[in-house]
Amino acid sequence: MTKTILSVDDSKSIRDMIGFTLEPRGFTVIGAADGVEGLAKLGSQPVNLVVCDLNMPNMNGIEMVRKMRADRRFDGIPIVMLTTEAQKEKMMEAKQAGATGWLVKPFDEAKLVAVVNKLLG
């Protein structure tokens, strides 16, 4: 069965880049523009991995991770946070909130695929 990846990011170009990279490799990629939409999508269909930006309007990445981890339905779904070099401290906060791993922007296809493979096997 194909695995589904939810890309939560307020930047359409990042969502597109994740789609263009992972869809040819046999993943299904769905997108959400912020944390609120992301949680809604998570509740409506099975998702195997979430790639989530830190800074987003309405509900930011860390809040979304907290909400996800508080909901037992989403137990065990890995979350990859997208960060920049300058956001190290935020990253530790996200990790404590329950994020699984991280990817530093700007990243290329190879790094994204490596992190997804590391977490999904």
Binding site: L49, R69, D75, G76, I77, P78, I79, G98, A99, T100, K118, L119, L120, G121
Partner: peptide, 16 residues
């Protein structure tokens, strides 16, 4: 203790 809830798969780590 939270590792598996948070999406970490120890089996994948050990395989790696």
């Amino acid at each position: 203790p939270d590792a598996m809830r948070n999406g970490l798969r120890p089996d994948l780590l050990l395989a790696e």
